[in-house]
Design a binder for these strands. Structure first.
Ligand SMILES: [Mn+2]
Ligand SMILES: [Mn+2]
Ligand SMILES: [Zn+2]
Ligand SMILES: [Zn+2]
Lengths: 133, 133
DNA sequence: TAAAATTCTGCGAATATTTGCAACAACAAG
DNA sequence: CTTGTTGTTGCAAATATTCGCAGAATTTTA
């Protein structure tokens, strides 16, 4: 457990909710000026393999990390407005179960980002049928 | 419909199964030497928005494209051995339905890559409990 | 301790993809 | 035909992430 790893873990744990690699890097580099981004990425990969953090692609180039001990959940991400809706883990547990039963496949569905269109954006789209120019 | 777009569409349609942006580019550049990768990516994005192709991240930096008219399906991707198992669309339709009912969210689940560990790799792992050095 | 083996790091380069911009092409109006 | 408008391209630079490598730090062995 090196100082840089410690600070990276700290940054992830202290984050309110999700945190990106760039934010972690900024936070760490403030106290420890000569850390490298590679180390941040490598440490995050390690933490992921150890099952301490989850990595989630929320779309649009935003990949975020989340400590496992702060609750499992998933996210619906609206491609139109970018809104993210929290989703309880139970919604995906039946899928996970059926993949295990039917395919003996252990799906890694800890913290998923599901792309789509939210209610608001769907309503707005139908209210504006004449999209035109 | 420009010549470069035509050739990109052709490359995707002619592909046996999945095809990556780099492969499309190689194929197109052979006949039309001064196309640019940007055009390939831009065209693929366009085709995706038009609902003609699906884009899927199969993990490990492999993003592949697939024409919609060649059947909908999903993939289980083993993180250990890289094997991909085909999955019928029906397996995810119940999830899609419940997201629509409970959250009024239209999930974009046309061609998903689900990460995890396959049967073989799981058995091998348990047969080798003494992983050691 | 000293030497050897291992692990971790910073750095710079590679990778895949996206973006801004200016030239270019198609096309409509005058 | 001349002009203006719009959409498409190539190029070069930005972005996020990964990788090889050689040196530093650590741990193991003798
Ligand atoms: Mn989350
Ligand atoms: Mn497929
Ligand atoms: Zn929305
Ligand atoms: Zn496997």
């Amino acid at each position: 457990m090196t100082p840089q790893r410690l600070m990276i873990v700290e940054a992830v744990e202290n984050s309110t909710n999700h945190i990106g690699a760039d934010e972690i890097y900024s936070e760490v580099v403030a106290k420890y000026p000569n850390v490298n981004v590679s180390t941040v990425y490598r440490t995050l990969e390690l933490l992921e393999q150890l099952g301490l953090v989850t990595k989630t692609d929320l779309g649009g180039g935003r990949v975020v990390y989340h400590p496992v001990d702060k609750g499992h959940h998933h996210h619906l991400v609206c491609k139109e407005c970018g809104a993210t809706i929290d989703l309880d883990e139970s919604v995906l547990s039946s899928l996970k179960d059926s993949l295990l039963r039917q395919y003996q496949f252990v799906a890694d569905l800890r913290h998923l980002g599901i792309q789509g269109v939210c209610v608001n954006c769907r309503q707005h789209a139908s209210q504006k049928p004449a999209e035109s120019k």
